[in-house]
Amino acid sequence: MNGIFRFLGETVLQIFEKLGRGSYFLVLMLGGVPEVLKRPGLLIAQVYSVGVLTVALITISGLFVGMVLGLQGYTILSDFGAEQTLGVMVAASLVRELGPVVSALLFAGRAGSALTAEIGLMKATEQLSGMEMMAVDPVKRIVAPRFFAGMLSMPLLAAVFSMIGVLGGHGVGVGMLGVDDGAFWSQMQASLDVREDILNGIIKSVVFGFVVTWIAVFEGYDCLATSEGVSRATTRTVVHSAFAVLALDFLLTALMFGDF
C-alpha cells in the first residue's frame, strides 16, 4: 500500500519536474527568435524538412478522409432526404475537427518523431555538446528554427488537409453519387462562417502545431544520450502529442463552440 502511494507521489513529482524543464526550455527557445529572424535560411531549411516533406502524406490522407466523409454522409443524409446538405457535413467536420486534429496527429507521426530522433541523435553523438564548445548555442541554432518551422507549417498543412478533404467529398458526393453541385457548395457556404468555423479551425491548428513541435523538440533535447534513450523519446513524442492534441481539442472545442 505504501509502495503505491510512493509510486504515485514520485510519478506526479516527475511530471511536474518535466513540465518545469519543458517550460524553461520554451523560454530558451523564444530567446532564439532574433537569431531566426536574422538568418531566415535556417528557417527555410527546416520548413522544408518539417513542412514540405509532410505535404504528400497530408494530401493523400485528406483526400481519403474527405471521400469517406462523402460516402458515409451520403448514406446517412439520404435517409432523411437531406443529401443536399452533404457539403455542409463534409466541410464542417473537416474544417472544425478533422482538419486540425488528424493533420496534427499525422504531423506528430511524420515530422514530430523525425524532429525528436534528429535532435536526440545529435545529442547522443555529442553534436550539441560540440556546438556548445564552439561557442554556438544549440538551442538557438538547432532547436529554435525547427520549433518555429513546425509552428508555421502546421496551420498550412491543416488548411491543405481540409481543402483536399472538401474536394474529395465533392468528388464522391457530386461526381459519383449525384448530389447537386450548386446545392453542395451553396449549402456549405450558407452554413459555414469565416470567423466561427474557419478561423477557429486555424486557431486550433496553430495551438496543435505549437504543442506538438514543442513536445517533439523538447523530448529530443531532453532524452538520454543513448540509442535506447532516443528511440524511447521518439515513442514518447508520438504518444504525448496524440494525448495533448486530443485533450486540447476537447478543451478548445468547448471554449469555441460550447456555451460555457
Binding site: S162, M163, Q189, L192, I198, G201
Partner: peptide, 14 residues
C-alpha cells in the same frame, strides 16, 4: 497553404 486558406475562406464559408 495560403491558397488553401483562401479556398476555405471563399469557397467553403460565407
Amino acid at each position: 497553404g495560403i491558397g488553401a486558406l483562401f479556398f476555405l475562406a471563399l469557397q467553403v464559408s460565407n
